[in-house]
Computed example of a mutant assay.
Amino acid sequence: MNLVELHTRAVELADGVIGTVQPEQLVLPTPCAGWDLRRLLEHVVGQHRGFAAAARGAGPDLELWRDVPVDGDPAGAFRRSAEQLTAAFAEAAAKDAELPLRLPEIRDGGPFPLSEAVGFHLLDTLVHAWDVEAALGAPPELARAVDGEERLAAALLAVAERVPAAPADRAPGRAFRARLEQPGGAGPFDRALALLGRDPAWAPPAR
């Protein structure tokens, strides 16, 4: 299974979580500080659109990356945009496995080889799906599922290990917080979360 196929599998697992979200749950807090579930999912759908546009040759146009309203159909908005993205990645890979992509929200905007861009989004997909699962207060099935698929878990951890971790890269307002100490005996998914500054034990505040 190549990286594009692993990414498609990541999206399938994410859909198993995000596909359960109901409109009334969009007000729930998430592990992303200051973001409720609506804001998180609007970001996710906007990223789908941006990565798909990049895979189809778009330049560094930030307008293509803006958040997309999910309103009354969060699960459908995720699924439709994810299908468009996986198709764009597959089409690009069929043409050129190292096609350069412009990703204006990442570091200097690139260009990044397609394989690296796919890795970035694989990480985003799984981590944001975990954010949603945690926000819903659901059992941690996603981490167990990923840890049970050796190649997918290895791909996630490999990308997480390469995310810049200097203080300036993890300052407030950045995508990730400072790395946390990895829990003893943790599996690959929880290790990846800790590398990104997320507490694998995060739970929604008591209501």
Rank of each mutant, 00 (worst) to 15 (best):
P69R: 06
I106M: 13
K95V: 13
T86V: 14
W35L: 13
R66W: 10
P100Q: 03
D108W: 10
I106G: 07
L114T: 01
T30W: 11
Q47T: 05
L37P: 12
S81D: 12
L101T: 09
L41D: 04
V118H: 01
A52E: 00
R49D: 04
S115D: 06
E116W: 02
R80L: 14
A97Y: 01
R56D: 03
G59A: 01
L28Y: 12
G46K: 10
V45F: 12
A53K: 02
L99M: 10
A93H: 03
H121W: 02
R102M: 14
E91K: 10
A92R: 03
A52C: 02
G109I: 15
L85D: 03
A53C: 09
R56Q: 09
C32V: 12
W65I: 08
T86S: 13
S115M: 03
L99W: 00
E91G: 05
G59L: 10
A55V: 01
E42W: 08
V45P: 15
L64F: 07
E98H: 03
D96I: 12
F78E: 09
D71A: 15
Q47V: 05
R49A: 07
Q47M: 12
V118N: 01
R107W: 12
R79I: 06
D61L: 12
D96C: 09
L114N: 00
D61M: 12
E83I: 06
I106V: 15
A77G: 13
G50M: 04
F89L: 00
Q47S: 14
L40F: 05
H43W: 09
W35G: 08
V68T: 06
A92F: 02
G34Q: 08
P74E: 06
A97C: 06
P69W: 06
P111V: 07
A88M: 01
F51C: 05
T86M: 11
A75S: 15
L85H: 03
L101I: 11
L122R: 09
A77Y: 11
D71K: 07
L41W: 11
A87H: 14
